Simulated scan of single mutants.
Amino acid sequence: MTQQLLMIEDDTRLASMVGEYLRQSGYGFAHAATGTAGLEALQATPPDLVILDLMLPDMDGLEVCRRIKGRGGDAARTAVLMLTAKGDPMDRIVGLEIGADDYLPKPFEPRELLARIRAVLRRGGNSNGNGGGAPADGHKVMRFGSLEIDRDARAVTVSGNPCELTSYQFDLLVALAERAGRVLSRDQIMEAVRGRELEAFDRSIDVHMGRIRSAIEADAKDPKRILTVRGVGYVFAKQQD
């Protein structure tokens, strides 16, 4: 089944170029020039991924992302890849805090956009997260006390209660859990997830860790599962509740 993409971008020339490239790469593609039109299109037919520009004529792209992630049903599970022409890392951090799955600064190469889209969709598993049906036997489930991480179902629970994580946050958690007891630097963690080196001082990793802690820790301010090693990075504790 063809995966569907929606680009919310007011630069129609750019959207046309990107759309042609992505269609040739095997994706379905739709375009909306405003945030309002994009939200209406998403509500009518939720795509697998939204390519969202930060600067839109009618509303801030961050507000569009917030509304996408705040909706119920399939729309809330739609992955969001933000595009930004701004150099301020705070834009990325805020976007990631409200649920964006990845970001890409402008100008960008179409091939890099395609690679990012594929990576986000691959992390997200089946289209819209609801195409897998009932779990099959033989799932690879990691258990740490009351915490369970089901890699096949891409689900996390604590004492049987589901934890809400983005696809990227789930992969970050898995990368740490698979290396329990081993201290990892920020760039090692991001390389494990994305498969390539990124800037070691990219603080977006800290934002994601904060979100993961809020989801799986009894007290995110006093974490027992994901510990910070000052000046180095993070470690996933082997011994837990």
Rank of each mutant, 00 (worst) to 15 (best):
A237E: 06
D102E: 12
L83V: 09
G145A: 05
K86M: 12
D206Q: 09
K140D: 15
D202E: 13
S185W: 02
L104G: 09
A44R: 12
P105N: 12
G160E: 02
R151C: 14
M142Q: 13
V193L: 05
A76P: 00
G132M: 11
D58R: 09
D222I: 12
L83D: 01
P135M: 11
Y27H: 09
Q3E: 10
D171T: 14
L42A: 15
L165I: 12
V18D: 04
M55R: 12
T12K: 02
I68G: 08
A177V: 08
Y168I: 11
H139S: 15
L165A: 08
E197W: 06
G38L: 03
V120Q: 06
Q4T: 13
L184E: 06
Q188E: 15
Q3P: 00
Q24G: 14
S185Y: 02
H139V: 10
D88Q: 09
E197F: 09
F29S: 05
Q3M: 11
A134C: 00
A33G: 12
G210P: 00
A33R: 11
M82P: 14
M1Y: 03
R213D: 09
P105K: 09
G38Q: 02
R122Q: 14
L56C: 11
E20M: 12
A79T: 08
G35L: 03
A100W: 01
M209A: 10
D222M: 07
E191T: 15
I205M: 14
R111Q: 13
R230S: 08
S159Q: 13
A85G: 14
A76W: 00
M209L: 15
R111P: 01
G70P: 00
V158W: 01
S159W: 02
Q24C: 08
T12R: 10
G145Q: 06
M1W: 00
Q240C: 08
R77G: 11
P89C: 04
L104Y: 09
K221S: 14
P57F: 08
P57Y: 07
D206M: 03
R116V: 09
R67F: 03
A215Y: 01
E217S: 08
A153Q: 13
E148W: 01
R77E: 11
P89E: 02
E97F: 10
I117K: 04
G73K: 07
L14N: 00
R13M: 11
N130H: 14
L83F: 11
R67L: 15
E9K: 04
G72D: 10
P46W: 06
H31M: 04
Q240T: 15
G72Y: 00
I216N: 04
A76G: 06
I226Y: 07
K221T: 14
Y103R: 03
S167K: 05
Y234W: 13
S185P: 00
S204R: 05
A30T: 13
T36A: 15
A220F: 06
